[in-house]
Design a binder for these strands. Structure first.
Length: 488
RNA sequence: GGCUCGUUCGUCAAGAGGUUAAGACACCGCCCUUUCACGGCGGGUUCACGGGUUCGAAUCCCGUACGAGUCACCA
């Protein structure tokens, strides 16, 4: 059995769309699940769209998610170079061979003529094959005169072309639908379509994996393989990733739906592992419906027949949930390490009990970038209304809250060892004495300590993190606020 | 518009002629509880529509509708 070889062939645009990343992931998984090779090839044949540093974005992304390529521009390999602009001179001879065999031809049509074909009421819709039947003498003459040219593929006029896709099955396209596409551009560079076929063959790629936007142009590729007498690869076309619009309609995932780039998602506080895990599940389902996977787990479970045919909508809610699962699954130390930049953002100078902080945050955080907002109240007591002390379920009101704080403050003042455990024992002795439920005491304490109704962690943890001095200061502020409110 | 592909809860989806049509996210309710979260339990008109084929269709066939892709010297 031939070794499986797949390739990720991005254009260096400086941006890694999640759709691209998913394609890379599936290519990697297809190769690795059968012990094959995964190749990285940079497709930079469009000289007008070159972006500085764009290739690094590709390396960085793959590195962050743990997808390792066996061959590529940076690591080399037996089929190099792996950058198309460095392979430029390889393509023309193949195109010329096609011309010689009558499968392609020189075209001298100007841009203006081409444009005019698609204008006005006589719009033709495509190329009219004007140069297809130029005699060899004419072509040679124009070539000698230095008239700019492109090389176009000569498509069959009649009949149809059928191919089998591993996901979509048998697909037939009428040859009359196929345009005489350009193989070599007037700047001498090959088009994507042509370079792709040549390189995939030269690099022994066995599985061509790509988005299904290429589905209907696949016959053009196959006609090229046939013209050269090369073996066809296995095609694996992937369904698109879509986004849901406000009005309920669906369109290709783009900025207006949210973050669509890998680095955007990371900035939003998502973990690379969670992003990869989520993306793997968008359009693919394992036999046993498992949902949480490491990259290695995906390699072990992946199979092409689990790829779905229909487009799927990127669901930020589910990604968020999955990210929370990853966050909760890690050790406290790992969590603290990831959270530390946020901790330091809020407390650049001070050190708090970060372990305790992490222990209350870890079950609650779903995106790392929420942390700074969640812990802001530790740094500064928010402005709040005395009304917050009133809570039906805890049976607290403006009057008994005073009693609770007046009971809590002195015992806390006498407490020397300021640990969560000691605070717990001290505070929880009070409700019994006062003959109230725990919540009746703890609600006002927490409100006074935090100045908000919803907090990560309970009163005890919050006091422990705040420290004795700050706790007492805040409880007294709360007490004053209550007395003030009761006066009115 | 031509061509190609697709359509199972709001979303991701299992399902391959006979199932009470899984599971997950989201949502709602209850429990746990020191608020929130975590965790536990429970809930909901889901097979686009219309015809066939069949004893029997989410599954097979044909139409229709809707959605998407594609028709570049972009990839």
């Amino acid at each position: 059995m031939k070794e499986v070889r797949t390739r990720f062939a991005p254009s260096p645009t400086g941006f890694m769309h999640v759709g691209n990343l998913r394609t890379a992931l599936y290519e990697y998984l297809i190769a690795k699940s059968s012990n094959g090779k995964f190749v990285l090839r940079i497709e930079d044949t469009d000289q007008e769209r070159l972006v500085e540093g764009a290739v690094d974005v590709i390396y960085d992304t793959l590195k962050q998610v743990g997808i390792v390529h066996d061959e590529g521009p940076d690591v080399g390999g037996p089929y190099g170079p792996y950058v198309q602009s460095q392979r430029k001179d390889m393509y023309l001879p193949y195109a010329q061979e096609l011309v010689k065999n009558g499968k392609a031809y020189y075209c001298f049509c100007t841009k203006e003529r081409l444009d005019s074909l698609n204008e006005g009421e006589n719009a033709f819709g495509g190329y009219d094959r004007h140069c297809r039947d130029l005699s060899q003498e004419e072509a040679d003459k124009l070539l000698k005169e230095g008239v700019p040219y492109v090389i176009r593929q000569k498509m069959p006029i009649t009949g149809s072309t059928t191919f089998v896709d591993a996901v979509y099955g048998e697909i037939t396209i009428e040859n009359s639908e196929l345009e005489d596409q350009i193989l070599i551009k007037s700047d001498g560079y090959p088009t994507y379509n042509f370079a792709n076929v040549i390189d995939d063959h030269l690099m022994n790629i066995t599985h061509v994996v790509r988005g299904c936007e290429y589905l209907t142009s696949t016959p053009k590729y196959n006609l090229l393989y046939e013209a050269f007498g090369w073996e066809l690869p296995t095609y694996v076309h992937l369904p698109m990733i879509m986004g849901k619009n406000e009005d309920g309609s669906v369109s290709k995932l783009s900025k207006r739906h949210g973050s669509t780039g890998f680095s955007d998602l990371v900035n939003d506080g998502y973990l690379p592992e969670a992003i990869i895990n989520y993306i793997a599940l968008l359009g693919w389902c394992p036999k046993d419906n498992q949902e949480v996977f490491t990259l290695q787990g995906l390699v072990e479970h992946f199979s092409i027949d689990g790829i779905s045919k229909s487009q799927s909508i990127f669901d930020y809610d589910k990604l968020t949930w999955l990210n929370g699962e990853y966050l909760r699954a890690m050790t406290l130390e790992q969590f603290t390490q990831l959270a530390m930049p946020s901790y330091k953002q809020v407390f650049p100078q001070t050190d708090l009990n970060w372990d305790l902080m992490s222990s209350i945050l870890q079950p609650r955080v779903t995106q790392l970038n929420q942390i700074a907002d969640m812990i802001g109240f530790f740094k500064e007591l928010p402005e709040y209304s005395a009304e917050l002390f009133v809570n039906k379920k805890s049976k607290t009101n403006l009057e008994n809250s005073v009693t609770m704080l007046e009971a809590a403050i002195p015992v806390l003042e006498r407490l020397d060892t300021w640990t969560a455990e000691a605070i717990h024992d001290t505070l929880l002795a009070l409700p019994e004495q006062l003959e109230v439920k725990n919540g009746t005491l703890l609600w006002p304490v927490r409100i006074a300590a935090a100045g908000m109704t919803v907090t990560p962690g309970g009163a005890i943890e919050i006091l422990a993190i705040l420290g004795k001095d700050e706790t007492l200061r805040r409880l007294n502020i709360g007490l004053e606020k209550l007395k003030e409110a009761n006066k009115e």
